[in-house]
Design a binder for these strands. Sequence first.
DNA 1: ACTAATGACTCAGAAAGATATCT
DNA 2: CAGATATCTTTCTGAGTCATTAG
Length: 893
Amino acid sequence: MEVKQEILTPMKVEKTNGNVPTPPPTTTTTTVMDDDLFDDEASPPQPNKKLKAENGSIKKLTPTPKPAPVTPKPTAAVNGKKPIPKKKPVDSSSDSDSSDSSSDSDSDSSDSDSDSSSSDSSSSDSDVPKKKPISKIPNKPSGTVSKTSKNSPKTTTTTTTTTTTVKSKPAPKVKPEQSSSDDSSSDSSDDSSDDSSSDSSSEEEKPKKKPSKKPAAVKKEITVKKETTTTTKKTPVKKEVEVKKETKTTTTKKVKKEESDDDGEDEKTTTKKKTTTRKRKLKEEEEGEEEEEEGVNKWWDKEDDEDDGTKWTTLIHNGPVFPPAYVPHGIKFMYDGKVVKLTPKQEEVATFYANYLETDHVKKQAFKDNFFKEFKGLLTSEQKEIVKKMDKCDFSHIHTHLKTKKEQRKARSKEEKDAETAEKKKIQEKHGFATIDGFKEKVGNYMIEPPGLFLGRGQHPKTGMLKQRIMPSDVTLNIGEGEVIPPSPIPGEKWKEIVHNNTVTWLAFWRESVNGGFKYVWLAPSSKIKGQADRKKFEVARGLKNCIGDIRKGYQKSFNDESTEKRQLAVALYLIDFLALRVGNEKGEDQADTVGCCSLRVEHIKLESNNTITLDFLGKDSMRYLNTVQIREDAYKVLKTFVKGKKPTDLLFDSLTVTQLNNHLKKQMTGLSAKVFRTYNASITLQKELDKMDTKEFQSIDEKILFYNRCNREVAILCNHQKAPPKNLAETMSKIDEKIQELRDLQDLCRIKIGKTPKSQQEDIESREAERLPKLIQLAITNKKDKDKEKTDKEISFDVKAAFEKSRTLPDAKGKIKEKIAKYEEQIKKQEILKTGKDELKTVALGTSKINYLDPRITVAWCKKNKVPVDKIFTKSLRDKFPWSDVGTDYIF
DNA sequence: ACTAATGACTCAGAAAGATATCT
DNA sequence: CAGATATCTTTCTGAGTCATTAG
């Protein structure tokens, strides 16, 4: 049923990038809160009901027997475009909660107030944004943290506790000094030292360019070192290096293992290993223990560094890894039926294209045109005589070759796979970590992006252009002063530049060829440097909670200001706050046409009746935002004047710039900018939703998780986080339906046997049953693979039939039959839940908000309170990312 | 003094890979 | 238990935000 809708979405869809179906268009209106409420801090963020509307109300979980039948709501409006103005959100079926949540979002203002006050008390740093003075060396999280005590050696977190626990061992200190000792890093360092020397020498040759553009602003006295410098010191350097090396190694060693899995102990950390599960588990445990031995940098328990603009004191790493050189395959490329011989370079580019032959990319004219231009640019003049039109190029042989290769790869033996992973691991050990201020940290993206075709999202004018291969001479490294400079991994190549800029956090950067943009190598999210920034982000958002009331009052007051600028600013801010829109910076012509709040054009908004507006535009990543919502009457009236007399392509907020808006916000609160509203509204929404949990209804862990996901979903809808529906969604859904029907029929058969009335007509049951057997047989025949190869179709058919009949045989005892009915009921329930969950989440992406917008402490507190293991909600990498989120159940955002 | 351009960092969904579940 | 398939995680890299600098 609902199936189809995605497909039909209106043209708009196309605009979104081909594969992303637009969100379902249905819209609903939401009511606005009243002024008064609004004034309060608590005003609720708003309503992007679009997705929500789509499937109608959320079904209740039904722990109780009789699950409500899942009715797929009318998802009706399928076709987007114009939403019907006010469709009532919840349908009858929905129950209270869903309805509540939607409409009310506003209502609960009160709590926020209270929260605010309490907030301070709760977690560690209470302070508001900006910097915090707090001291407290030891564990500061006052909450109830069960957290690991600082010294106990292996604390295992209690189940519910959070995130990674830390290991024991006092954190190593930051000082690098130390005696020498062995060196684990020997190879790298050794090599490097040699190479580096050479490097440096080479570097000295080209000292001049340094001054020109340094990516990093060298502020204050950061030393930006160019090769020159290095050179000068060269000799000395070497020496120093040696010494340093030793020290360093030790340090490293000490620190090693900082990255722990910590909960490895408990059952499921997921390291990826391809051993069987059992094995894997064992392994993990071992690892876990090992790690326990080493110290960890529990930065979150310590006082924050003061914010003086420097991001680190010492920084050591081995540089990024470059993609392997191209290996020509010699497969023919044809033009107009004739083979055209290609050089390796040409062949490489042709191969990039061939790889996309079966994708939607090649359906875009821009992709083909851009590619062809690039490709032609590589051809010799003789070749150009022949190759003139893209349409006559035939990359199919190459494409076939690629496919074969892919299959081969998939089929490679276990040994090969193991060897490959071992190799990967080795590289990761060397390049995947950096030592920063004496602690070993994971590097996020230490692999340089391979060359290929640029795949922009949506209607990007540059899609299909060639992304050039990046060489060491394109890459600038940022490394601690005096540290060993890693040798260039490619012989004959030198690094573009070496800098020592401790006001930034990148380890390396290069410029990408298509848009001339910067690409950086950063530390992983689990690193202290990222973690602190992340925590700070949430602290700023929490700080907003204290001023949100004033800010709201402020902009509401300005709706009628005499200055157009002020009025526009006020309304824009209102939309950002209420609808969680992005701010919308200006964009160039050479980018996809997407907008945010400040860049909205008149064509993106429709003023309906009853103070309702419909926003329909492509936002970040060309994701369609479609929402019909009722807004404040005063805002509506002003908006009307902004639209008046303008062309569809004119800016809605023509007198407003993003800079003005942010400057205004900065004045209201330190650290405040437009994006903070998204973080704030997302987190506060999660907290409010979670607070609504009815513990009677959601009892099992699975039910609680389902509940959590629903709360998470509210946030995802608010932020318009979407995903393409699974490819075979329709199929999966109807499969589930079929299964449910079958279970029901089986139940009925049981009922008939014991003389009870079945739920459906006996003939219907029989006819459905009659259809099932042949289907099963057919399926078994088609599926017979190597395994039953020797069996004839007849035999299979016979076997299947036997199995089928066996499954329909009922015991004679009445009690047993009743048991059976109950069992089926359970299975049905399970399927219903599954279906409901799938339906609710088919186009909603929960991940983005979980990773970026939701204060993890809210989740941790909820988990503890409800005895849900955190690892059911946070994956390993999320737990690693939020080691600082271990708070007590009383944490309030 | 003000824009426009830079630079650095956060946030996005898809693709790829790993694991779990089904048959 | 094996292989297929569904689902969950991680990787990848494009696309925003926004403060700072350049002109």
